[in-house]
């Protein structure tokens, strides 16, 4: 797993972080909660992911662990067979 994530996913996650400072690098293990991603924000991020990648996140994948870090989000998309 590389240190950073793909541009499109990077932009979607960054848009969901209300307190990310300019120039923050979204490493795979960055704790997203630290930059303001709460559960309400996560629901918004899920909708954005579904729109952008044409996928549906199933009920059983709606667990906080899948949205803890950029790496976890990418792993979720890989499981959903989404190409980012």
């Amino acid at each position: 797993m590389s240190d950073t994530i793909d541009d499109r996913l990077d932009a979607l996650i960054r848009a969901a972080l209300p307190t990310a400072p300019d120039g923050l690098v979204l490493t795979a293990d960055l704790p997203l909660a630290a930059y303001g991603l709460d559960s309400v924000g996560t629901v918004g991020l899920i909708a954005a992911l579904e729109d952008a990648f044409g996928c549906t996140v199933p009920d059983e994948e709606l667990v906080p662990a899948n949205f803890r870090t950029p790496g976890a989000v990418r792993a979720l998309l890989t499981r959903l067979e989404v190409t980012t």
């Binding site: 209300p18 307190t19 400072p21 120039g23 923050l24 960055l30 704790p31 909660a33 630290a34 930059y35 303001g36 709460d38």
Partner: peptide, 21 residues
């Protein structure tokens, strides 16, 4: 350092993390 928020997330549960810093 710029990673105050990351360090804070290592100390507090998510609901205690400040929304504004």
């Amino acid at each position: 350092s710029a990673d105050v928020q990351t360090r804070l997330a290592g100390l507090l549960p998510a609901y205690m993390l400040p929304r504004h810093l």
